[in-house]
Amino acid sequence: MTALPYVDGNMLDGPLGEVFAVDLSTATGRCAHCGTASPVAGLRVYSHAPGLVARCPVCTEVILRLVRAPDRVWLDLRGATFLQFPMPPE
C-alpha cells in the first residue's frame, strides 16, 4: 500500500464540532478492528472524498465517517468501540 495524502485528526475539530457539544480535540477513540486506542487528533483523515474518512493510524481500518449534506449530517462510528472524552470532575 502506498500512502495517499491524508491529514491528521485535528481537522475533524470543526466538522465534528457541528455534531458534538464537547471538544473532540482531546478525545480518544478505540479501533474496533485492531483495538488500538488513539487520540482523535492522531487519526488519518482522508478528506479528498465525498465525505471525511478517519482511519486507524495502526491498521488503517475506518474508525469514523462523516458525510455533510447541505441540511443533514451522517456520522458513522461503527469502526470505533468507544470514544472517550475528558470531563471536569463531578
Partner: peptide, 11 residues
C-alpha cells in the same frame, strides 16, 4: 482529473 480517495491506494 481530481483524485478522490477514501483511503490508502492499494498496489
Amino acid at each position: 482529473f481530481p483524485v478522490l480517495s477514501a483511503g490508502p491506494t492499494p498496489k
